[in-house]
Nucleic acid binder design. Structure first.
Lengths: 156, 156
DNA sequence: CATGATGTTCAGTTTATACTGAACAAACCG
DNA sequence: CGGTTTGTTCAGTATAAACTGAACATCATG
C-alpha cells in the first residue's frame, strides 16, 4: 500500500512524535502529508495509514492546533484537504506556543504557591528552603528566556 | 508524611518529567532529593515517596545516567547516598547527550536509508521526492546545530 | 565462610493513554 | 425537506509503559 520511502518517512515522524510526546497517529498523519505530492483529505489519510476515522480526525485536529498542517481549498469538493506546513520555523513556533507555554505558565503558578508555603516554616529551616526555591525560580526564568531564542535560531 | 512544600516541589518535577518523557517516579525521586537538606539513600526515597524498591532503584539509575544526581560518600555507612545536582547546565548537557543525541543519531541513519530508496523511483517522481528529502535533511541539520547552542544559552 | 544489609532484575500486574467504531451533528444538494 | 457526504465525539477496548515485590546477586563484616 505504502511505498518503501513513504514507510521510512512516516517512521521518522512517528519517532519525532514520540520525542515530542504526541500520539503515534499524529506522527503518521504528518508523515503521509509531508511526503504526499498532493493535498489529502481525511479519508485519504485514514485509508493509506489504515487507522480509524476517530484517530484521523483527532490527529488532524492536533496538527492544525499548532500549525503543522494547512487546509487547502479544492474547488467543487466539500471535503477538507490538507498539506504539511514545510516551514520549520512556523511549526516550532506553533508547537512552542500551544504545547510548551502552558506548561511553563502552570509552573509559574506553582512557584507562587511554593513561595507562600515557605511561611509555614520557621526561620532557620526557611533559609535552606528559600535557597532551593530561589534556584528553582532561576531555572524557570532561564527556561522561559531560552525558548524564544531557540525559535530565533531554528528558522530565519 | 511529606510537608506541603515537599509535595509541591515534587509535583513540579513530576510535571517536568512528564514533559521530558521520563517516568513519574523519576520526577518524584529527583524532587525529594532536590528539596532535601541532606543526602538520602534508596530507602529514604522509597519510604518518603511510598513507592516500591524496584521503581526507586530504576529511577535512581536513570537520574545517574544523565548526571541529575550525584552519589556522596558517608563515612561508616555501606549505603549509597544521593544529592540532586543543582547545575542546570550539567543536567541539561547530560540529558542532551544521553537522551536526545541517540534519537538524532538514529534519525541520521534513517535519512541515509531514505536517500537510498530514492533510486527505486523513476526520474520525474524522484524530483519531487528529492525536494522533500532535502528539506528533511535540512531540518535535521538545523536541529543538530541548535542543541549545542541551547546548552550554551542555558547555563554559563 | 555464614550472616545480614544493600541494591538490581524481571515476570506479572496495574495504570494511563491512544485507538476504535458507531452514533451523532453539520452542511450540502437534488 | 429527505438523503448523502463529511467530520466530530465519546464510551468502550486495546496497547504500551510504568510499577510492584519477591527472588537474586553482591559485598562488607564478624
Amino acid at each position: 500500500m505504502l511505498t518503501a520511502i513513504e514507510q521510512e518517512v512516516i517512521a521518522l515522524f512517528v519517532r519525532m512524535a514520540d520525542v515530542l510526546n504526541l500520539p503515534r497517529s499524529v506522527g503518521e498523519i504528518y508523515g503521509i502529508l509531508f511526503i504526499a505530492t498532493e493535498p489529502l483529505c481525511l479519508d485519504d489519510c485514514r485509508i493509506r495509514l489504515n487507522i480509524s476515522k476517530g484517530s484521523t480526525s483527532q490527529g488532524l485536529k492536533i496538527l492544525r492546533s499548532f500549525g503543522a498542517i494547512r487546509t487547502v481549498y479544492v474547488p467543487g469538493d466539500r471535503k477538507d484537504y490538507y498539506v504539511a506546513e514545510t516551514s520549520l520555523r512556523k511549526i516550532a513556533a506553533g508547537f512552542a506556543t500551544e504545547q510548551i507555554q502552558p506548561h511553563l505558565a502552570s509552573g509559574v503558578d506553582r512557584m507562587a504557591r511554593i513561595r507562600d508555603l515557605l511561611e509555614l516554616h520557621d526561620a532557620d529551616e526557611r533559609v535552606q528552603l528559600e535557597e532551593k526555591v530561589d534556584l528553582l525560580e532561576n531555572w524557570q526564568s532561564r527556561a522561559g528566556k531560552v525558548l524564544p531564542l531557540v525559535l530565533k535560531l531554528i528558522g530565519g
